[in-house]
Structures are given as structure tokens and as C-alpha cells.
Write a protein that binds this DNA or RNA. Structure first.
Length: 422
DNA sequence: TCTGGGGTCCTAGGACCC
DNA sequence: TCTGGGGTCCTAGGACCC
């Protein structure tokens, strides 16, 4: 196989969202910071200082003890800023390799195959450059497979003595490192699988590496599990994916800041989620051929529960806000039931096809709706999000989410740009 | 009072066909 | 009492990821 001598690096930003907030708040260096999910619900990111206070990812904010909260600086999530900073980091990382894959908002795989250099030194250079240019600290993990690069990165983050760079690309001593990592930290092994493994006394990555193929095949979900184990053994099975694929589906949903009990309230929410989803479709020049609407009550509350969803196949693929809104409101009426306190609603757009691949039929409409969408997108680009919106998405929006601790949009809004006093 | 959002991939099982 | 075998396609749901 030609992939024998591959070398991958995984570069991952440390506490990314929190580090972004820190750029503009140098006073918070070395301080515990946590970032909250939409609606200020749960902790989604935090600095190591916050971790040391006992804060954990996924924890509801209101459950954090008051004395901990006093020491903690929290922010509502500010995705436009994080996205902007992510771009800058990714641009710099791309300079370090001919081929790279942006894996998530804060991670990128680099192909370092065939570079005749000291990889650890190269990793240090990457860290220095990113930190200097953007202010974001990163960790670098290097290995013969993406899974090993991930694992190396994990060690680099956990153990300070490595100064943020771990190179596992040579087979020497690699088992010693694998023995330091619990199976639950391996890429592709989640809660269910690690529980199963631990029951079999397979505790570390090293244990898993030497577990027999037959057992893995039978117990770890076939091909996926097998791939992970082979990757641990240094056989690259997951190639670098340099061209981002088209979205398969688009989801837009929010929990409500306050429960919604009326059909009209839900209609407003669903309409505005459609606007978000349809705009995404048009931005990437695609159309959807199926639409799902769902509504849910609050599962944490001891009150009557009702969850339902309904899917509709559109007569032809469309990205029209007006058409999709019409379909969605119809679907909503069919599943809505009186007498419940709804906590969340959402829409999903599926069967996404490129505009160029749309099969036109007798029912394909004329250009009217397309013109409306163009106007919608143009006005909103010029005058700001939601300058123009469908009437059904409502003006009051009593249901909209809470964002109590939001930082200014330093990088994307002129009115909130950072002002430096000299 | 207050418990996120947006994805991918894989598998099992049903419907249908010859 | 007997009641095949093999295939495809689609969907729902599970598991995982960030």
C-alpha cells in the first residue's frame, strides 16, 4: 500500500473559544474562563484554570455552585467572532503543509509526509507562528495515522512537560505513550464503546492496539472499530480529506429562552429557522428535497411531554425561503397539539443537491420566488442580518434565546471593534 | 428561574423485486 | 404440514465527533 509512510500532524487550538475571548481581554490571562452554549445553558468550553475549579464540559451553568461561579468569568458564545479567528488560524496553518484538512472550527490536519526535518522542531515553529500572529495557543500531535496524531495531540495537551508538541511518528517507545492514554480518549471511541472495552479489561490505547481482530470485529461495530485499531497500529486507514464535501443536511434549531405554548409562537420560531436554513442552502448554491419539522417539550421537567416530527418531500428541490416556509408551517400545524409547554423547535433540510443538478419538471415554478430570495439576501447583506425577514417569523420573538454574557463582536462589527487607548 | 447545536457514518431491518 | 434465496433501496436510530 502506498500509504505506508504517511506522517500527519494534528494542530488543535487550546480551549479555543475561551482563548478567543482572552485575546481581547488580556486581563483574563491565567484566569478561569468558561463559555456557555446557546441560551446560556451549558458549559461548552473552558480554560484549564476553570477545569481546575471542577467545571466540566456539558454541565448546566445554573448547577455550578455559587462560590465557583464567583471565581469564574463566563461568556455567552459569540460564534461570529470565533469563526473569524478560526479563519485566521487556518490560513496560517495552511502555510506549513502542501495539503491540509480543516477538521473543525479549531483543528486542522496537516500532511507532513516526506518532509526531511525535525518534526518536533517543526511543531514548535507552528505553535510560535500561530501564537504570534493570532494570539491563540495551539498543541501539535504528530503520528503515522490521523488517529495517532490525535492521540499525540491529546498527550501534548495533558502533560505540560512536552511544551505542546508530541511526535509519535517513530515506532520506538510508542507503546509507552499508548499506555498513558485511556481508551475513552481515543478518536472514535465514545462512552458506549469505552464502557464495553473496560468491561473486558481493555483500559489503555496500548491494550486496544493488541486486542485481536476477531474480537474487535464482533464487538466494536465492525469496520469502524477495526479501522480505529489498525490506525493505532500505525496503518493509515483514514485519508486526509482536503476538499470539503457538500453538506448532506442542514439543521436549524434552538431551545427557547422561555417556553412557548401557542401555535403562533411556534410558527414564528419555525419560520425564522427556515430563513436561516434556506439562506445556508443558497449560500452554498444548493437546494433541499426534503424538509423535517420537529417540536419538543422540556424533558427535564416533570410535566406532560410531547415530542413529534414530520417530514415532507418537496415536489422539486428548492432553496426558496417562501416555499420552504409555507411547507414548514403546514407541517407544524399537523403535529402541533394544544396544552403543552414547548421548549424547542427545529427544522432539518435533507436530500441536498447542487443547483446545477436540479431536475426540472412540470411543477418547477417560475422565477418569482428566486427573485424574492435574491432581494432578501442582498438587503440583509447590506443592512445587516434580519433587516428584511418573512412576516411569519414575528417581530416580538418572546421565545428567542438568552445571551446574558456576550462579548462585543470585536472583529466583525464596526460599532463594536476594539478601541485601544494609548 | 435556568439543562446547546450541528454534523457524519454505519447498521439493522423493512419493503419490494425477481 | 409444507411455506426459498438473493438482491437492492430506503429509513430510523445508534454512536460518535466538535
Amino acid at each position: 500500500m502506498e500509504n505506508k509512510n504517511k506522517i500527519f500532524a494534528l494542530v488543535d487550538c487550546n480551549s479555543f473559544y475561551a482563548s478567543c475571548e482572552r485575546i481581547f481581554r488580556p486581563d483574563l490571562r491565567d484566569k478561569p474562563i468558561a463559555i456557555l452554549s446557546n441560551n446560556d445553558g451549558c458549559i461548552v468550553a473552558m480554560t484549564k484554570e476553570a477545569k481546575e475549579l471542577g467545571v466540566t464540559r456539558g454541565e448546566p451553568y445554573f448547577k455550578i455552585p455559587a462560590d465557583t461561579r464567583k471565581k469564574l468569568t463566563v461568556f455567552s458564545s459569540n460564534y461570529s467572532m470565533y469563526g473569524d479567528i478560526s479563519h485566521r488560524v487556518m490560513d496560517i496553518l495552511a502555510e506549513f503543509s502542501p495539503e491540509s484538512e480543516i477538521y473543525s472550527i479549531d483543528e486542522s490536519f496537516l500532511d507532513l509526509t516526506g518532509m526531511n526535518i525535525d518534526l518536533t522542531e517543526y511543531g514548535k515553529e507552528i505553535r510560535k507562528k500561530v501564537k504570534w500572529s493570532t494570539g491563540i495557543p495551539v498543541s501539535v500531535g504528530i503520528g503515522k495515522t490521523k488517529t495517532l496524531a490525535k492521540l499525540a495531540n491529546h498527550i501534548a495537551k495533558k502533560r505540560e512537560k512536552f511544551n505542546g508538541v508530541v511526535d509519535l511518528s517513530s515506532d520506538e517507545n510508542i507503546d509507552k505513550y499508548l499506555a498513558m492514554v485511556k481508551v475513552s480518549s481515543i478518536w472514535g471511541v465514545g462512552r458506549k464503546l469505552s464502557a464495553k472495552l473496560e468491561r473486558k479489561n481493555i483500559i489503555t490505547a496500548k491494550d486496544l492496539k493488541y486486542t485481536s481482530d476477531g474480537w474487535i470485529q464482533r464487538n466494536l461495530g465492525g469496520v469502524t472499530g477495526m479501522r480505529t485499531v489498525w490506525e493505532l497500529r500505525g496503518i493509515s486507514c483514514i485519508p486526509l480529506d482536503t476538499i470539503p464535501a457538500l453538506n448532506k443536511g442542514i439543521v436549524s434549531s434552538r431551545s427557547f429562552g422561555k417556553s412557548v405554548e401557542t401555535l403562533s409562537g411556534l410558527k414564528e420560531a419555525v419560520s425564522s429557522y427556515i430563513s436561516i436554513g434556506a439562506k445556508k442552502l443558497r449560500k452554498q448554491k444548493t437546494a433541499a428535497s426534503a424538509l423535517t419539522v420537529y417540536i419538543k417539550t422540556n424533558r427535564f421537567k416533570d410535566e406532560p411531554q410531547y415530542n413529534n416530527s414530520i417530514t415532507y418531500k418537496t415536489p422539486y428541490p428548492t432553496s426558496s425561503t417562501i416555499e420552504l416556509t409555507e411547507y414548514a408551517l403546514n407541517l407544524l400545524e399537523r403535529i402541533y397539539k394544544d396544552g403543552y409547554k414547548y421548549k424547542k423547535a427545529g427544522i432539518m433540510l435533507d436530500g441536498i443537491v447542487p443547483n446545477t443538478a436540479i431536475q426540472y419538471s412540470l411543477f418547477t415554478p417560475d422565477k418569482f420566488n428566486a427573485d424574492v430570495d435574491i432581494a432578501l439576501d442582498t438587503v440583509n447583506k447590506k443592512w445587516g442580518r434580519n433587516a428584511l425577514f418573512t412576516a411569519s417569523s414575528g417581530i416580538n420573538r418572546k421565545w428567542s434565546m438568552r445571551r446574558e454574557f456576550v462579548s462585543p463582536r470585536y472583529t466583525t462589527n464596526w460599532n463594536e471593534i476594539l478601541k485601544i487607548r494609548i
